[in-house]
């Protein structure tokens, strides 16, 4: 049984990125909260096996992405259909000087999230890790992809995200 205190500390530090990760993989808010709980549960059960061979951050993201993958595979298997995220449910931009700026920021943020959710699984994994600021080495260690493959994907992902932010359609 892991130490409850260190588990809570870990969650405290990683909750914002884990919430973003859960939201990036799910189709509505309820599902996102459910996935967040699954991730927390997986961290709790895997914590005794953490030997410090990789960084805490790399380890947490591995567990989180694997849990997301299993969660979505199970949802697919059960044929679950959910309502799509609505702009009101989307993550919100933290601050802006004026209401106009805030509305603009919110619109851009909405486009960014939509663009990330439209990526296929492998690209989405890389995109989420990249946007959280992980290094190529860390992404390599989490995904098991080669550095070359990550670089190619990142080029494609950047193009897609930038186009969507400018309000342009992305060709598949």
């Amino acid at each position: 049984m892991p130490d409850a205190r260190s588990f809570e500390d870990l969650l405290q530090r990683f909750l914002p990125p884990l919430k973003r990760l859960a939201a990036a993989y799910t189709r509505d808010r309820d599902e996102s909260e459910e996935l967040l709980q699954e991730i927390a549960l997986a961290i709790w059960t895997s914590l005794p096996r953490f030997r410090g061979e990789s960084s805490e951050r790399t380890w947490i993201y591995r567990v989180a992405h694997n849990t997301a993958l299993r969660f979505m595979a199970d949802r697919r298997r059960r044929g679950a259909r959910e309502a799509a995220w609505t702009p009101e449910q989307e993550p919100v931009a933290s601050s802006a000087a004026t209401p106009e700026q805030q509305a603009m920021q919110q619109e851009r943020l909405y486009r960014l999230w939509q663009a990330v959710r439209e990526l296929d699984w492998a690209d989405r994994q890389v995109a989420v890790l990249y946007l959280e600021g992980l290094s190529t080495n860390e992404i390599e260690s989490i995904t098991g992809m080669t550095a070359g493959s990550i670089a190619t994907r990142l080029t494609r992902i950047r193009q897609k995200l930038t186009l969507r932010l400018r309000g342009q359609e992305v060709r598949p």
Binding site: A4, F7, E8, L11, Q12, L15, P16, P17, K19, R20, A23, R29, S32, E33, L36, Q37, A40, L41, W44, T45, Q89, P91, V92, A93, S94, S95, Q105, R108, L109, L112, W113, L131, E132, G133, R158, L161, T162, L165
Partner: peptide, 28 residues
């Protein structure tokens, strides 16, 4: 700009770490 937008995004649900940790302990 992409980094800042993504990392500044906050989700409005009230799940805080302590509450989540307690929920997971109960669930286990």
């Amino acid at each position: 700009e992409l980094f800042e937008m993504w990392q500044a995004a906050t989700l409005s649900d009230p799940n805080d770490a302590a509450r989540l940790a307690r929920a997971i302990e109960r669930r286990t």
